[in-house]
Design a binder for these strands. Structure first.
Length: 287
DNA sequence: TCCTATGTTGTATG
DNA sequence: ACATACAACATAGG
């Protein structure tokens, strides 16, 4: 159930495969995760290619391969984890499990005495994830079209302000989930941001004062940067959770209390998603 | 049985 | 055309 920082964490799970050639591709072509690409093309073209690098942006990942042909054709594998997608590395030679949709087998390099090779596995039992495949010198258009990161200089107060103005009647919670402007923000990050900014998730976007917009912008950047550092850069077997001082740790607790006010948290569906907030610090009435 | 789930998208409505 | 709301997708677990 990954958002910005968890996607970065998951992307790095395949790092052991960097610099290694894919010998065989195993996939289950009927899986819904292949709706947006041709699995047969992927299975035909990828074998023989070397995994060279990867990147994450928003909730997307892009893995770049170099084909073995004379032209060194660049191959691009895009992955989205949906709600339940995972990337793992397994020892070579294991059979595919039920929810494994794409397996890239990498044999041991001939010179390597201490490696038996590995399989890079993309699995997703709920199949909301997506696989995309692209061939050519440049990254695919969909990748280039991802909105600038909320941690980048292009994510300015003015940009946020204009976006909120165009969505004036929508609740804040719904708008924070819009990837076209808040790439990588998902349900828990949106709640975390609004809690820190002391803004009620049901507030209409058009009702915010300039000071409130500034606060929303600042907390968006802060939460994303901190989450990337705490979760995205972790090397633990599972991705870590943020500290107890974050709303995150209390949002699902029965009778959960706001870590700042120590007063009860509330939950309701706002913007179509279960939302948690602290009524003591996030007021619905305009300030 | 019914409800929930850290996501996206197609469709209906205004 | 644009903004908004919500069902649908597929599966497991409480």
């Amino acid at each position: 159930m990954p958002e910005l920082a968890e996607v970065e964490y998951v992307r790095r799970r395949w790092n052991p495969g960097l610099g290694h050639v894919v010998s065989t591709v195993r996939l289950h072509p009927r899986a819904g995760v292949f709706k947006t690409c041709d699995p047969a093309a992927l299975a035909a073209i990828l074998p023989g290619a070397r995994l060279d690098s990867s990147a994450a942006a928003a909730k997307q990942m892009l893995f770049r391969f170099t084909a073995a042909d004379a032209a060194h054709t660049q191959l691009w594998l895009g992955l989205h984890l949906g709600m339940t997608g995972e990337l793992t590395v397994r020892p070579a030679g294991l059979p595919a499990a039920k929810a494994d949709h794409l397996i890239l087998d990498q044999p041991a390099a001939p010179a390597a005495k201490n490696s038996l090779g590995r399989s890079l596995v993309f699995s997703d039992f709920r199949m909301f994830g997506r696989v995309q495949f692209h061939t050519g010198p440049d990254a695919p258009a969909w990748w280039a079209g991802i909105a600038p990161a909320v941690t980048s200089p292009k994510f300015t107060i003015a940009v946020v302000s204009e976006f909120l103005r165009r969505r004036a009647r929508a609740p804040l919670k719904a708008v924070l989930l819009m990837q076209e402007r808040f790439p990588g923000i998902g349900n828990w990050m949106a709640d975390e941001i609004l809690w820190r900014a002391a803004l009620h998730p049901a507030r209409r976007c058009g009702d915010l004062s300039p000071a409130e917009v500034k606060k929303l912008h600042r907390e968006t950047v802060w939460v994303a940067a901190q989450a990337l550092r705490l979760i995205g850069e972790a090397d633990t077997p599972e991705w870590p959770d943020p500290p107890k001082t974050w709303l995150f740790q209390h949002r699902w607790e029965d009778g959960g209390k706001c870590p700042r006010t120590k007063k009860p948290l509330e939950r309701a569906t706002i913007g179509g998603r279960t939302t948690c907030w602290s009524p003591a610090r996030q007021k619905l009435s305009a300030t």
